[in-house]
C-alpha cells in the first residue's frame, strides 16, 4: 500500500508542479481570477446591495443559492451523525471511558466558563449582526455561539449543557434555520420574482429595493447562524459521548 501511495503522489506531484509553472505568480493583480468577476463585485456590489462587506454580499446575495446548500450541508451532517450514532442498543462497550469522579476539582474551570459563556454569546450576536460591515456573518457567529455551548458541556458535562438547551430544541432549530433561509427565498418566488431575489421584499416591508437586499441578507445570515449553532453543538455532544448523551469527555 505504501508503494502504491508513493507512486500516486509522485505522479500527482509532477502533474501539479508542471501546472504551477503556468499559473500566475502569487499576488499578481492581473491574473484572470482577479480581474473578471472579482472587479465586477468590487465595483458594483455596493451599488447593487448596499453592503460594504463584499464577501458577505457575494456570499449571501450573488451566490446565495450556494450558501443555502452550504447550510444544508451542515444540517445534513448533523442528521447523519445522529442517524449513525444514536441507534445502537447500549450493550456495546463504551468508546470513551467515564471520567474519574473528582468533586470540586473543576471549580476554576466552571467559574471561568460561567463568566465566559455570556460574553461569547454576546460577541457572537455582534458578529452575526455586524457581518455587513466587518468580518463576520452567519457561519462565524453561529460557530462562536456553538462554541459557547460546547465550553459549557466541556467544563460541566453534557447533561448540564442539555439541561440549558434541550435536545428537542436543538433538532427543531437546526431545521428551522434552514427553513428560515428557504422561506426568505420562497416569499420572493411567491411574489412573482425568482427564488432568492430579495428585491421582492421591498414592497412587503415598504423599503427600497437596495435596503431589501441588505435586509434579506441579514435574514438569511440569522438562519445560517441558528443552524450552525445547533449542529455544532449536536455534533459535539454526539461525538463526545458516542451517541449516549451522558457525561461526555
Amino acid at each position: 500500500m505504501k508503494k502504491t501511495a508513493l507512486i500516486i503522489i509522485a505522479v500527482l506531484g509532477i502533474l501539479l508542479l508542471r501546472a504551477a509553472e503556468d499559473l500566475p505568480s502569487w499576488g499578481d493583480p492581473q491574473s484572470p481570477a482577479s480581474v473578471h468577476l472579482s472587479n465586477y463585485y468590487l465595483e458594483e456590489s455596493y451599488e447593487e446591495t448596499s453592503v460594504p462587506n463584499i464577501v458577505t454580499a457575494v456570499l449571501a446575495d450573488y451566490r446565495s443559492y450556494d450558501t443555502l446548500f452550504e447550510t444544508v450541508v451542515i444540517f445534513c451532517a448533523g442528521i447523519t451523525v445522529l442517524l449513525i450514532l444514536r441507534r445502537t442498543p447500549r450493550r456495546w462497550p463504551k468508546v470513551i471511558s467515564p471520567r474519574p469522579n473528582r468533586p470540586g476539582a473543576d471549580i476554576i474551570l466552571q467559574t471561568a466558563a460561567r463568566l465566559l459563556v455570556p460574553m461569547m454569546q454576546l460577541f457572537a450576536l455582534y458578529v452575526v449582526a455586524h457581518g455587513h460591515h466587518s468580518p463576520g456573518g452567519g457561519f462565524q457567529g453561529g460557530v462562536i455561539l456553538g462554541a459557547s455551548l460546547i465550553l459549557l458541556a466541556l467544563s460541566y458535562d453534557i447533561e448540564m449543557a442539555l439541561h440549558r438547551f434541550k435536545e428537542k430544541f436543538v433538532l427543531l432549530f437546526s431545521a428551522g434555520g434552514v427553513l428560515l433561509y428557504a422561506a426568505i427565498g420562497l416569499v420572493c418566488l411567491y411574489l412573482g420574482r425568482n427564488f432568492l431575489a430579495y428585491g421582492a421584499w421591498a414592497d412587503l416591508l415598504g423599503i427600497s429595493e437596495l435596503a431589501a437586499h441588505s435586509h434579506g441578507m441579514l435574514g438569511v445570515e440569522i438562519g445560517v447562524a441558528i443552524t450552525v449553532l445547533c449542529i455544532m453543538f449536536s455534533l459535539y455532544i454526539d461525538l463526545a459521548s458516542g451517541g449516549d448523551l451522558d457525561e461526555g469527555l
Binding site: 502569487w26 499576488g27 499578481d28 493583480p29 481570477a33 482577479s34 472579482s38 463585485y41 468590487l42 455596493y46 460594504p52 462587506n53 463584499i54 464577501v55 460591515h133 466587518s134 468580518p135
Partner: peptide, 11 residues
C-alpha cells in the same frame, strides 16, 4: 484571491 498591495474586500 490575494493581490499585491490590496486590503480586505470591505469598502
Amino acid at each position: 484571491g490575494d493581490k499585491r498591495g490590496a486590503t480586505i474586500p470591505i469598502l
